Every structure is written in structure tokens, then in C-alpha cells.
Simulated assay, not measured.
Amino acid sequence: MQDLSARYPVWLCDIWGVVHNGVAHFPKAVEALRRHRGNGGLVVLLTNAPRSAAKVAGHLAHLGVTNEHYDLIVTSGDVTHELMKPYDGHRIYYLGPERDLGVLDDLKIVKSSPDEAEVILCVGLVHDDTETPQDYAELLARMARRRLPMICANPDKVVRRGNKLIYCAGALAELYASMGGEVTMAGKPYRPIYELARARVEERRGTTPDTHILAIGDGPETDIKGAADYGLDVVLITAGGISEEGADPAELEAEIRKIVPGARIIRTLPDLNWA
């Protein structure tokens, strides 16, 4: 990544699978981020985590990733908060673990039953270590029959926690959409999170052309597609994220280019490494 630092002063870097695996940080990755900042670069951690930037920062600190390694954090939770503002004072069905309720901070929203709610806020599976989306099929079908709109706080379908793949809110949203449900996505690969990131960057650095921004990530349907749709070059990371362990990087890149025809992959690396 060293030779890309001057060419792309602003890095929009995914977190889970690139900087850490949910259990521990990747030493080479955090060193690369630190070196980029020392080289005059700006590091924005761009994540589909369905919680505020402040809460993500707290979790990162627990994993050994500190403000020495990044300048800004922009989360799907931040975007979700904006999308939920029109429902302030309304009844919602909250689908997800209690730990992510902070996404509704400062909003006077009433948690309600599936039969009384006006909207679904989906942040994930309640017990993501043991459940699958099919455990929610009956509940989702019930709400789809009521034509409840869903706001999905995390478009990721799966992430790797340690050595285990776990389902995320995006998998529930996909199932709901297949039932005819209306879904609005808050995070990558959709534009709102990139627009928020750009606004935060330009508050720091002023007008910043696309050619000075580099996306970094491991998710084909989130990081790679989001960068392509927003017009950004991207570095694909293969070893720490959702890819199968031992996958050949060249073969993986070729496969992703089939999935995302407009992929703007400029480099494929096993890990985020300065040199």
C-alpha cells in the first residue's frame, strides 16, 4: 500500500475483515493505516456496523485499534439514524439484539409488536451465533403481508467472527425482499453512506476529487460494488474477511469481476500491508 498512499490521500477503509476479524486486530493492517496517516493521508473507517461511530470507536479500542490509526469513522448506524428521523414518535418493530438499540438515541420511538408497528428497523439476528435467517421466515412473512417497510441498518449478509461465518441484517433483508417486502438499505454499497463519508472528508480537507479517494474492502456485494457504483478505485483484501481461507487471490478477483462487472479493483492483496 505504500505506493498508493501519495496517489490516494484519502482511504475509505472497511473494518471487519480488513482491520480486524471480530476477535483481534490485524497488526499489518493497523500499521499500514498508521503509516498512511504519517504520510499525510486521511483514514476514514467505513463500516456497515449498525451502531454509532462513538460505539464503534469503543469496540475498536478494545481490539487495539485507536485514533492513532484513523481520523474518522462513518457507520451504517449513523445513516440509519438519519433514515429513522421521519419515524420519530411512531411505533416500530425492532429486529435485532439489545446492544444495538443505541442507533435510536435521541429519537422518541416506541417499540411495538409486528401487528401494530408502522416500520421495521432491522439491525441483525437477535442471537447471531446460533440463528439463521430461516429462523425468522414466519415472522418476516407475517410483516410482509402487512406491507411494512423495512430499514436495514447493516446490508452485510455475512461476516467472519474469528473462524466462523455469521449472518447479518442484510441476509434478513434479502429474505424479506424475496417475500415482496420493501427494503431501504443504510450502508454499503448504497450511496447515502458514501455521501456522508465524503461530507465528513470535505469538512476536514475541502473539496476532494474522486481520483484522490481509495476504497479498501473484502466484500464483493458491499465494498467492491459500492466503490464501483460511487466511482471509486478499490483495493480488494482476500485473507481476513468473508473469503474462504486459502483462496487464490487471482481466482477470487476474477470471480468477483463476474459478480460486479463494473468493479474498479486496482490491486488484490491477501492483507492490508504497507510494504
Rank of each mutant, 00 (worst) to 15 (best):
K164E: 12
D115I: 14
E202L: 04
I242K: 00
R147L: 12
R204G: 06
G217H: 00
N163I: 07
Y136K: 08
R160N: 04
V119N: 10
I120S: 03
I166P: 09
G241Q: 06
A227L: 11
T132N: 07
R191I: 03
L165W: 10
D135C: 12
Y136F: 09
I120D: 05
G240P: 00
V183W: 00
A171T: 08
V119S: 10
P149M: 08
A239T: 04
R145M: 15
E182M: 09
R200E: 15
R142K: 15
C168Y: 00
G180P: 06
M143F: 07
T130F: 11
G162A: 11
E131G: 04
T130G: 06
Y167E: 12
A169Q: 09
V235Y: 01
A171G: 09
D115S: 15
R205E: 13
Y136Q: 09
E195W: 10
M143A: 12
P149C: 10
A228V: 04
L125W: 03
T130Y: 12
A169H: 01
G219F: 03
L139S: 10
L232M: 05
L232D: 02
M185P: 00
A177T: 09
G217Q: 02
G219A: 13
K225D: 12
G181E: 12
V110R: 14
L148P: 02
I166S: 04
A173D: 01
S112A: 14
E203A: 15
G180Y: 01
I193K: 01
S178A: 14
A197K: 07
L232V: 06
D218H: 09
A186T: 07
L236W: 07
N163Y: 05
K188C: 03
L232I: 08
V110Q: 14
A153N: 07
P114T: 11
Y194L: 10
C168K: 14
D210L: 13
A173S: 11
V201L: 10
A141K: 13
R145D: 15
A141F: 11
G231F: 01
P114M: 10
R205A: 14
R142D: 14
H127I: 04
L232H: 05
P155V: 12
A239P: 00
D115N: 15
K157N: 07
A197V: 06
D128W: 12
